[in-house]
């Protein structure tokens, strides 16, 4: 078994580990790092439950070798938000009743968050297209699409507020 030492940023913190070169990024995240929010639900890249961000881009971590993350940055669901400070996509999922069993939820959050970064004002059909690689067996997707729409709206509102603050020397104060 060939091993290799890798160094990467995990949710903003530097990590160095020695691991078998054939280790999947998904298994490295779950078993070596103990970050079990990333889920394993299939073995063929079909379900999206293991989605994480690699240098900001969404990847299915069962289709990536851990050594490919050497020198790069990964973000997992644990790096997205926490109790009392949910990421806007997490908050939108909760408010929209888009979470049932929760097993697909981390992957959905990662996929939607990355999609909205690139598409701040998506149409409903664009959202449905963006979710096609993430399987949910509980909700029928209706509320997940709603949540993505709501999160996009919240993101635009936030950016508008920030832009307003930046262009206003009084910092938005009357």
């Amino acid at each position: 078994m060939r091993e290799r030492r890798i160094t990467l940023l995990v949710n903003g913190a530097p990590v160095t580990r020695t691991l078998a070169v054939e280790s999947l990024l998904r298994d490295f995240i779950r078993d070596d790092l103990g970050l079990t929010g990333t889920k394993a639900a299939c073995d063929d890249g079909m379900c999206g439950a293991c989605a994480v961000h690699l240098d900001g881009a969404p990847v299915k971590s069962c289709l990536v070798l851990a050594v490919e993350a050497d020198g790069r940055a990964i973000t997992t669901i644990e790096g997205m938000g926490r109790p009392g400070a949910l990421h806007p996509v997490q908050a939108a999922m909760a408010e929209a009743f888009a979470i049932q069993c929760g097993f697909c939820t981390p992957g959905m959050v990662m996929t939607i968050a990355a999609f909205l970064e690139d598409n701040p004002d998506p149409s409903t059909d664009q959202i449905r297209e963006a979710l096609v690689g993430n399987i949910c067996r509980c909700t029928g997707y209706v509320r997940i699409v709603q949540a993505a729409r709501a999160a996009a709206q919240a993101g635009r509102a936030l950016r508008a507020t920030r832009a307003g603050l930046a262009s206003d020397p009084a910092g938005g104060k009357p």
Partner: peptide
């Protein structure tokens, strides 16, 4: 009333533990 699910935060943040997550 449509009370939001009380386990939303655990499920949304990935802290909810399923049997495969026990260590």
């Amino acid at each position: 009333q449509s009370l939001p699910k009380v386990d939303n935060v655990a499920l949304a943040t990935g802290s909810a533990r399923y049997v495969g997550d026990l260590r």
